[in-house]
């Protein structure tokens, strides 16, 4: 099956947006690139069906969230076709609190982090988050509550002892 030019168009148009989403999900540019590529491979495999029946972008985003919580280790499985350059990315976050929060997010379990991203970046309702992650709404609520408590704790602790690096996992 040859590639549908509309798939290439989709990637060109939405690649950056997906990468931004991958970045807040994964917390670093490398895993973000992996997530995006893996989700696009799956989308490519189902392109004809997804284009007709679903929204390709929401399909890709859902795939990325699910891959992320599956403790997915693509790095072990396949060489990256494209790996973004390492760079300091958090130092341009405007103020201390946001930097601290970004650091603190690295300490969240994957599922909690996904819930936080879907709620506060994707602006999804708990019901929608439950659908995306394939869990119950109760699970979304409890994961969100735990994540927020943890973030609150570590931000107040970090205010006392600031750390320097945001990519620790």
């Amino acid at each position: 099956m040859d590639q549908d030019p509309r798939f290439a168009e989709f990637v060109a148009e939405r690649g950056d947006a997906l990468l931004r989403y991958g970045y807040v999900l994964a917390g670093n540019p490398h895993d973000a690139a992996d997530l995006v590529q893996e989700a696009l491979v799956k989308l490519r495999a189902s392109w004809a069906r997804v284009r007709l029946k679903d929204n390709p972008e929401s399909y890709a985003r859902t795939t990325m969230a699910r891959l992320h919580i599956r403790a997915w280790r693509l790095r072990r499985r396949e060489h990256l076709a494209w790996d973004p350059p390492e760079r300091e990315h958090h130092d341009t976050l405007p103020d201390g609190e946001e930097q601290r929060l970004w650091h603190a997010m690295a300490g969240l379990p994957r599922r909690q982090r996904a819930v936080v991203v879907l709620r506060y970046y994707e602006q999804l309702t708990d019901e929608e988050i439950a659908r995306v992650l394939g869990v119950s709404r109760g699970t979304v609520r409890s994961q969100a509550a735990r994540a927020l408590a943890k973030l609150r704790d570590s931000v107040s602790a970090e205010s006392a002892v600031p750390t320097t690096r945001g990519e620790a996992r």
Binding site: V11, G15, R20, Y23, L93, P94, W102
Partner: peptide, 25 residues
Amino acid sequence: ALRRTLTGAAGQAPHAPATLTGAVE
């Protein structure tokens, strides 16, 4: 603060390279 943080951090994400389609393919 989380909303601001995530939006701000997302802005720091790398751009998708022109080769992304090829890599995916």
